[in-house]
Design a protein around this nucleic acid. Structure first.
Length: 655
RNA sequence: GCCCAUGUGGCUCAGGGGUAGAGCACACCCUUGGUAAGGGUGAGGUCGUGAGUUCGAGUCUCACCAUGGGCUCCA
């Protein structure tokens, strides 16, 4: 056989007289490296390959060792096998299914005759640790499809048999550790002992292959690391995430509440409503700038409207219906059908287009009971919704303008990390394939034209058209869908919308559905988690707290309060006869950006001492200067304090 | 909707067959104290709802409602 050459990252070349495995290449370099090898990155692929993979001549190889971040993927893959082994050692009647690696760990889905309990999870973790302590060698074997099916069938592992059948490969790989084995394509570690830390995290129901018609399985979530310290840090971060939970922040800051008599219906308390309205006003200002006109349309419509729009046929599981005096009505789940009615109230000319109408209308969608979640998934909400009626040839420029507006708004809010997804036609849809082709191409072309990178989500579009979804990635690296833009050729057709063109003939407009914040409810939830409740000053319910040292400054404090209010600043004067430290603590917990600490010194000098929530303190400031700087910060919707430059919102630390 | 868990004063939680507890918050009083919790007193709960078991049920059983973690769906 001709010599086989393997190129390493430093461009050095190793030569073999046969096609070597990743591990063999590592051994040829050194025993220490070989011992630490957990896999290989081949030809710049993103996924780690198994260390037992045989390499062809000319392969470029980067050996993945325990010290590298990519090792986690391999460790977790093997840890999933350890979990499956642990479960089957504890309960031999439990059947295994699949156990993939996910973002921060892995899970394994089991088919168990009885549900697992929290105590079981502890038992699983303990048994996993015992198995790891055995430091078993992991051995890969290639079985014929026939042999694999026979073996797993005999064991009663019917899910595995189904997987092997569906794979339809002549041979499949099986990984053995001791006398336990599992069908798997890898990658896996050499010996289980390199898994230094495992933690079983939680339990959930899941359906076989994600289809609710299939049997329900028990999904056990867990994570694994190469180092106990990394696990400790991960668990710490989980705690941090809990502290930022918008439901907790909302309660702590008195922003919003829920009541069992309106599941999924948030109550915005005064402070929450203030944030809500500030955001709405912010978007309203942008509407003027970007050529939108705001409209107000009805809440409730005769069901005929939704028959016509297609919502009844495609969306009725999510709609609220009511019958009044023998007539069927529905609360609107979306604004678009109403906007079509509004469009058709007048004869439209091509000179009127693009007609951009915005609507903060309240929407109601009957979400299934298990899907509600704080503010991010509710049954009544309001979008920063707008529809653009335009001619076909305007689509691209409208999409561009939308992306510019979105970027403008996100930047103002400090949301700089987002990605774009293009969702294409779903199975349940209206309209012809030719129409869908046009719509999908229009979106793709506009993005290419703008040189914006995007990912295609095949089959994820709305029933009436393809869409762009803007996913914002928050401070804890979690993705959220906020903005969206949907191209719709179907509603204009359904409502027979027209405009008179320059040729004096009727033309069909295209309708674009778009939102930038998404829903105000969800946006507030996401933004609270992103900022850990440290909102920019313009958005924060109480901007200034006046804290008197003793009662004898009350008159001066009242005067300051009156002046601030006159300037439109949201101020609270804490008059209680509590000690200063106590008042500061409370203001701090309420995340109030500025505290005016007023004692005899300030009163005598007629100035103010300002404590920022970071703890930074400026003594003896001129009050008028303070007010004008503060007003400037608020009016500019700045994300930074003019006194310290510290960020008021972004990447705020949890306190 | 499905699986699992949870539901005790406004909030955070303890108590697990013999009739309700703590801390914080709240009210009143004392304290007037300079940068993250001063002290005292008091009020406040048909223990999610409804049935059942029992001499007796926050406590055990069942159903329902809500919430939480997921699945599925989605702004």
């Amino acid at each position: 056989m001709a010599a086989v050459h393997i190129t390493l990252p430093d461009n050095s070349v190793r030569t073999f007289d046969h096609e070597p495995t990743v591990l063999e290449v590592a051994k040829s370099i050194g025993p220490r490296l070989a011992k630490d090898t957990v896999g290989g990155l081949i030809n710049d692929e993103k996924e780690v390959s198994d260390l037992r993979r045989i390499l062809k001549d000319g392969t470029r190889l980067k050996i993945v060792t325990l010290a590298m971040p990519e090792a986690l993927e391999v460790i977790r893959h093997s840890a999933a096998h350890v979990m499956a082994q642990a479960v089957q050692e504890l309960w031999p009647d439990v059947k295994v299914t699949i156990g993939p690696v996910i973002e921060n760990g892995f899970y394994y889905d089991f088919s168990s005759p009885r549900p697992f309990t929290p105590d079981d999870l502890l038992a699983i973790e303990k048994r996993m640790e015992q198995i790891i302590a055995r430091d078993l060698e992991v051995v890969k074997e290639d079985w014929s499809q026939d042999q694999a099916i026979k073996t797993f069938d005999k064991m009663g592992e019917n899910f595995k048999v189904e997987i092997i059948r569906d794979l339809g490969e002549k041979s499949v790989s099986v990984y053995k550790q001791g006398d336990w084995f599992d069908l798997c394509r890898g990658p896996h570690v050499q010996r289980l002992g390199v898994i230094k830390a495992v933690k079983v995290l939680s339990l959930a129901g899941a359906y076989w292959r994600g289809d609710e018609k299939n049997p329900q399985l028990q999904r056990v979530y867990a994570t694994a690391f190469t180092d106990k310290k990394d696990l400790a840090e991960y668990l710490h971060n989980l705690e941090e995430a809990k502290k930022r939970d918008h439901r907790k922040i909302g309660k702590d800051l008195g922003l919003f509440y829920f009541h069992p008599l309106s599941p999924g219906g948030p109550f915005f308390a005064p402070k929450g409503a203030l944030i809500y309205n500030q955001l709405q006003n912010f978007v309203r200002e942008k509407y003027i700038q970007y050529g939108y006109k705001e409209v107000i349309t009805p809440q409730i419509f005769d069901v005929d409207l939704f028959h016509r729009s297609g919502h009844y046929a495609n969306y009725k599981e999510n709609m609220y219906f009511t019958k009044v005096e023998e007539r069927d009505f529905s609360l609107k789940p979306m604004n678009c059908p109403g906007h079509c009615l509004l469009y058709s109230t007048e004869l439209r000319s091509y000179r009127d287009l693009p007609w951009r109408i915005a609507d903060f209308g309240r929407l109601h969608r009957f979400e299934r009971s298990g899907v509600m979640h704080g503010l991010t998934r509710v049954r009544t909400f309001c979008q920063d919704d707008a529809h653009i009626f335009c001619a076909m040839e305007d689509i691209q420029s409208e999409i561009r303008s939308f992306m510019v507006m979105l970027n403008d708004i996100y930047n103002s809010l400090g949301l700089t990390n987002y990605t774009i997804f293009l969702s294409t036609r779903p199975a349940q849809r209206m309209g012809s394939d030719a129409v869908w082709d046009r719509a999908e191409n229009a979106l793709a072309d506009a993005l290419k034209d703008l040189k914006l990178p995007y990912t295609v989500n095949a089959g994820d579009g709305a029933f009436y058209g393809p869409k762009l979804d803007i996913m914002f990635v928050d401070a804890l690296k979690r993705p959220w869908q906020l903005g969206t833009l949907q191209v719709d050729f179907n509603l204009p057709e359904a409502f027979d919308l027209k405009f008179i063109g320059a040729d004096n003939k009727d033309h069909r407009p295209v309708m674009l559905h778009r939102a930038i914040l998404g829903s105000l409810e969800r946006f507030i939830g996401v933004y609270l988690e992103h900022t850990a409740g440290h909102l920019p000053t313009w958005l924060t319910p109480t901007q200034v707290a006046i804290l008197s040292v003793t009662d004898s400054q009350n008159d001066y404090c009242l005067e300051l309060e009156r002046k601030l209010k006159a300037e439109g600043v949201r101020v609270e004067f804490d008059q209680r006869s509590e000690k200063l430290g106590f008042k500061i603590r409370e203001a701090q917990l309420q995340k109030i950006p500025y505290m005016l600490v007023i004692g005899d010194k300030e009163k005598a000098a007629g100035n103010v001492s300002v404590r920022l929530k970071s703890g930074a303190t400026k003594y003896g400031l001129n009050f008028s200067d303070f007010v004008s700087k503060l007003k400037c910060e608020i009016q500019e919707r700045s994300l930074h304090s003019p006194w310290t430059g510290e960020a008021s919102a972004q990447d705020a630390t949890v306190t």
